[in-house]
Design a protein around this nucleic acid. Structure first.
Length: 756
DNA sequence: GACCTGCTGCGGTGTG
């Protein structure tokens, strides 16, 4: 029986290069053709001679694209038996992938193992005996293998035929990504030869950067197969909501029991609470628009997820219809999350998930009709990733709705509220999305924290290593860049001084007493720190807690709990930030998404305000709100002004991203001007024009900015997992390299002066 | 009040 593959030229189709059993499997699944990325991947991967990145939209069949040729290669006559090592960021993804490959691999008589913390040790041991087929593993579990089974690593590494990195984009520029790069190189060093690397990715902000990530030092040699741009049709709307807070009586049946038990008098009195008119309107809109289909709603925070899910659930109850709204975020138990995933996947009844970025990566959740973003997207990359989850069926459009709430303006409204910062950022990001721009990952970060982890891991793996060995494996290999020999030596000395390392008479580095404890605890395997937060204390009163992932210095201002505070002291050991109330007007209502806003986004925000073109994706309310912002911008002459007075502060308009703004705020604070980065502007407290200008001139005149100019205290920059053991200068340099744009701040200071 | 990710070995007891 002859079968043809319509989409590809059957004479030259690479389909016929696949193992016959795989061909039969494809036929038996009724596939009439291979997708473009699958077709192109076959000749690229089959010879196992090159590193390849496969870029295509979620569920465009990237997994099959990679595994069809890889499995074919594993089965070829004369090829030594071995396995493909696939590294994946999520347990849920590993479970998905394992299931998808099991069926095919059974036919091929090759075992598949998903390896992560929930998988029984017996199955792991069984795999280590055979070292055959497919292994899909988390970076942490792979790290654990190096640390605990160091002696089996050479045999394991020699059996690896390919290394696959799934969701490559999610690793680029992160601590975990640096760990993955290091583990890949260490596998190759143990094998004694290079192993072809395959990256599977959705959106790529910068192809060369992704290639350089996959093969540090030789990115230009990586072949990229990019099918991500395959035409997709997009339906898009940005809706504005003007907000007001109203007092509303709560119906008796919704009053909590505890309050009525405590106070019998209040039982007869109606309970009151304030409600946001805009949020209620959004809940109503979601209810009418989304019921009956599968959708994802991203409201930027877990508390907002719960708020909207609760509103929508109650609306279903009131109308006597089955609930279709589910929640999904990191604080929910695995069971609850799986319930939501199953509801979306099952497809029996319609289901919408209200979620955080836990549903951003490619967990299999079936077909999604539309995506809703409430509030500004955290980044253009994330917006595109979210959008990529909808309209995946041929002939269907992707649908994106962005909803933005703006405060009602008063005479006291802040600059941020006046320019409609949330809506403005959303609009700017949507424009950049339509231009196919996404944030490039940050270059040049030192990742000294992960260097500590990997140094200790190499020592554990080999039962001791010399300083020269560590240098060769981790730094000469180009995994960790911009670290000098002196810096590395000072790092090792610091680890020695802390009894994390010790050196024997032959010069071999071994774990010290403290190091032994750290390495032998399971927390060692992850490169990232988990959820340690600083308590915020004002005159002995605990205001709450917050994670420290932005620079924090004494004298700096911050907004917390809807009020302004000034940092008085920081106790790093006790994890306490001491603050006192700071004068100044009411803080803006703007609640930014997670993460740092890029320079390009803020520039685009300015050009939206300055521009006069009609943006067709805005609804009438959004147009009205933005018009008010433009009017404010023009009448105050903000297109020409670099700073102006608001309350008792000066607001400096840099129109720069957070890396630049944070660095400039530190420089100004170091020169005695208390400055905070409020995102869209810098706020400099209690200062006049002349003083600000003089200080900016001082900064601009510096030949170049050094770390000393920032006056950062090493004890205040503990952010990443191993920062606490780094020598002061390396700690500061590593911090600055990942969250500050010092050069950008210098240029900005100069530009602020020339334009004024 | 920003978001998210991950985790082994061992000893004790029980069962076939």
């Amino acid at each position: 029986m002859k079968m043809s593959l319509p989409a590809s030229n059957s004479e030259t189709s690479s389909f016929y290069l696949l193992d016959e059993r795989i061909q039969r499997w494809i036929w038996s699944h009724g596939w009439t053709s291979l997708r473009a990325v699958q077709e192109l991947a076959i000749p690229a991967l089959l010879p196992a001679q090159e590193d390849v990145i496969l870029a295509a939209a979620t569920s465009a069949g990237k997994t099959e694209a990679a595994f069809f040729p890889i499995l074919t290669r594993l089965l070829q006559q004369g090829t030594e038996p071995g396995f493909v090592l696939s590294i994946s960021p999520l347990k849920a993804l590993i479970n998905d992938q394992t299931q998808r490959l099991t069926d095919l691999c059974e036919l091929l008589d090759l075992p598949v193992l998903g390896w992560h913390g929930d998988v029984p040790a017996s199955r792991k041991q069984k795999f280590l005996k055979a070292m055959l087929g497919v292994l899909i593993i988390t970076p942490e579990s792979l790290e654990a293998l190096f640390v605990n089974k160091g002696t089996t690593i050479p045999a394991l590494a020699r059996a690896v035929r390919y290394i696959v990195v799934d969701e490559l984009h999610s690793f680029i520029g992160t601590e975990r990504g640096k760990q993955v790069q290091s583990l890949m190189t260490r596998i190759e060093l143990a094998a004694g030869h290079t192993i072809p690397r395959v990256g599977l990715s959705a959106t790529l902000g910068d192809k060369l950067l992704a290639a350089e990530f996959l093969r540090p030092g030789s990115g230009t040699m990586v072949r990229t197969i990019d099918a991500a741009g395959e035409g997709y049709d997009l339906k898009l709307i940005v809706k504005g909501y003007a907000d007001e807070w109203l007092e509303e009586e709560v119906p008796d049946d919704e009053v909590g029991e505890s309050s009525s038990d405590l106070n019998t008098d209040s039982q007869k009195q109606p309970q009151k609470q304030t409600v946001s008119v805009a949020k209620l309107a959004i809940a109503k809109y979601l209810y009418t628009q989304l019921r009956g289909t599968n959708n994802l709603v991203f409201p930027n925070s877990r508390s907002q997820v719960e708020y909207y899910a609760d509103q929508l659930r109650r609306q279903c109850e009131r109308n006597g219809v089955p609930n279709e709204f589910w929640t999904h975020h990191g604080s929910l138990s695995r069971e609850l999350r799986e319930e939501s995933e199953t509801a979306l996947k099952a497809g029996v009844t319609a289901a919408t998930a209200i979620c955080t970025n836990t549903l951003e990566l490619g967990i299999d959740i079936g077909n999604i009709k539309s995506v809703v973003q409430i509030g500004p997207p955290p980044s253009v990359a994330s917006l595109r990733q979210r959008l990529g989850r909808s309209g995946r069926r041929p002939g269907e459009s992707a649908i994106l709705r962005c909803l933005s709430i703006e405060k009602k303006l008063t005479a006291k409204s802040s600059f941020s509220d006046q320019i409609r910062e949330g809506l403005l950022q959303t609009t700017a990001m949507v424009r950049l999305l339509l231009e196919s721009w996404v944030e490039p990952p940050r270059k040049g970060a030192l990742h000294a924290s992960t260097l500590v982890q990997q140094s200790l891991s190499v020592i554990a793996q080999k039962g001791g290593a010399t300083a020269e060995e560590l240098w060769t494996v981790l730094i000469k290999s180009k995994i960790f860049e911009n670290i000098s020999r002196e810096e590395f030596a000072s790092l090792l000395r610091e680890l020695g001084a802390r009894d994390i390392l010790q050196q024997d008479s032959s010069g071999l580095l071994l774990p010290g007493v403290s190091g032994e404890k750290l390495i032998n605890h399971y927390d060692f395997y992850s490169a990232f720190a988990s959820g340690e937060e600083f308590r915020l204390l004002a005159e002995g009163r605990v205001l709450g807690s917050l994670p420290i992932d932005r620079p924090l210095t004494i004298g700096q201002c911050l907004i917390f709990g809807g009020r302004r505070w000034r940092v008085r002291d920081v106790d790093t050991k006790g994890k306490v930030v001491f603050v006192s109330a700071d004068r100044g007007g009411s803080p803006p209502a703007f609640d930014g998404g997670a993460g740092s806003v890029n320079d390009r986004v803020r520039q685009e925000m300015r050009s939206v305000l300055a521009g006069s073109e009609t943006l067709t994706f805005l609804d009438s309310k959004a147009v009205e709100l933005l018009d008010e912002a433009k009017l404010y911008f023009h009448t105050r002459g903000l297109g020409q002004k670099q700073w102006f007075v608001e309350g008792n502060s000066l607001l400096v308009l840099t129109w720069r991203g957070d890396w630049t703004n944070d660095a400039l705020a530190l420089l100004l604070t170091a020169k005695g001007l208390a400055t905070s980065n409020e995102g869209v502007a810098l706020r400099v407290s209690s200062v006049d024009h002349l003083k600000l200008k003089a200080v900016l001139e001082e900064i601009a005149a510096l030949p170049q900015i050094s770390m000393e100019d920032l006056r950062l205290k090493p004890e205040h920059v503990i952010r990443e997992k191993w920062d606490w053991v780094l020598p002061d200068s390396l700690r500061l340099a590593s911090f600055a390299s990942s969250v500050l744009d010092i050069k950008g701040a210098h240029t900005t200071a100069q530009e602020l002066l020339t334009d004024n």
